[in-house]
C-alpha cells in the first residue's frame, strides 16, 4: 500500500498518460491507516532510531527554579502563551512532588522531597490510553514508542485529554499564532481546535539531534535514549539508580523515569 502510493507519484510524474493511470483510482483520502511494521521508518541517514525511546529525569540534579527545558521546548515548538491558565498550552511544566507522585509522599517526608519541582511532560506511554480512545487515529504510537499527534487529523474531541492520567495534553482553545512570541519556521504552529503535547522531539530525532529539553538542560538532569538497548546510557542509569514512574499502577507504562 505504502509503496504503491509512492509508485503513483513516480509513474504519474513520468507518464504522459497522466490522466489514464488506473493505479490512482484509489483516492488518497480513502486510504486506510497505515500500520508501520516494526523496524521501519526514519530513513534519513543521520536519524536517531530506537526500539523504545525513554527519558530519565535526575531529580537530584534538577533544580526547582530552573526552567531552561521548558523555555527551549516551548520556543522550538511554537507553543503559545495566552497569558491565562484556562486556555494554557504546555508541553513541559513543573509541579510539586506531591502532585506528580500522589501517594509517594507521606506526612513526614523531608523538606528535600517537598521542595522538589519535577518537570512533567507526556510519558509517551507504552500502553497509552490516549491512543486507545482517539476516534480518528490522530494520536498514534510509533514503533519506537513515541506517541504522536497528527495535527492534520485531530478533530478536537478532547477524549484523549480525558483519558490521559497525567494531564499532559493541551487543547488549542483559540488560534495560537498571534500568541507565539517568536515563531520557529522549522516547526508548524497548530491551528485552533486541535490537541497537542510533547512529542519527544521526533522532528529533531529525525534529523539526528536529541530532544530540545535534553540539550537545553544545563544540569544534565535529562537523559534520553533507547530503553530496549541494554547498553544504552538510560539503561545504565535505570539499573543503578532508584526511579519512580508517574502513576505506574494504572498500567500505562510511562516512559519517563524520575531518578532519586
Amino acid at each position: 500500500m505504502t509503496s504503491s502510493r509512492r509508485d503513483f507519484l513516480k509513474i504519474a510524474g513520468a507518464s504522459a498518460l497522466t490522466m489514464m493511470t488506473p493505479a490512482i483510482f484509489v483516492p488518497a483520502w480513502a486510504k486506510d491507516v497505515i500500520v508501520i511494521p516494526p523496524g521501519q521508518g526514519l530513513a534519513l541517514k543521520k536519524a536517531l532510531a530506537a526500539g523504545r525511546w525513554a527519558m530519565t529525569v535526575d531529580l537530584t540534579k534538577c533544580t526547582a527554579d530552573c526552567t531552561d527545558c521548558i523555555a527551549a521546548c516551548h520556543a522550538i515548538h511554537n507553543v503559545p502563551d495566552f497569558g491565562n491558565p484556562k486556555d494554557e498550552i504546555k508541553w513541559i511544566w513543573k509541579e510539586s512532588f506531591a502532585s506528580v507522585f500522589p501517594g509517594e509522599q507521606n506526612a513526614y517526608s523531608g523538606e528535600k522531597l517537598q521542595k522538589l519541582r519535577p518537570p512533567v511532560f507526556c510519558n509517551n506511554c507504552e500502553n497509552p490510553p490516549c491512543v486507545r480512545v482517539c476516534p480518528t487515529g490522530a494520536t498514534f504510537q510509533r514503533p519506537d514508542g513515541i506517541v504522536m499527534m497528527d495535527y492534520h487529523r485531530c478533530i478536537g474531541c478532547r477524549l484523549c485529554m480525558a483519558a490521559c492520567p497525567y494531564g499532559a495534553r493541551s487543547m488549542n482553545y483559540r488560534d495560537p499564532r498571534p500568541c507565539i512570541a517568536k515563531i520557529n519556521p522549522d516547526f508548524p504552529t497548530r491551528s485552533k481546535g486541535v490537541v497537542e503535547k510533547c512529542n519527544f522531539c521526533e522532528e529533531r530525532l529525525a534529523k539526528g539531534t536529541l530532544p530540545a529539553c535534553v540539550e537545553a538542560c544545563r544540569q544534565k538532569a535529562l537523559t534520553f535514549g533507547d530503553a530496549e538497548n541494554p547498553r544504552s546510557e538510560i539503561r545504565r542509569l535505570l539499573k543503578t539508580r532508584f526511579s519512580l514512574q508517574r502513576r505506574v499502577h494504572l498500567g500505562t507504562g510511562p516512559q519517563i523515569y524520575y531518578l532519586l
Binding site: T2, R5, K10, I36, Q40, G41, A43, E202
Partner: peptide, 16 residues
Amino acid sequence: AWRDEAVREGKRVYTA
C-alpha cells in the same frame, strides 16, 4: 501523501 507518510509512517525521504 508526503504529509501522511512523514508524520504517520516516519518516512521522510522522497525519491523522485
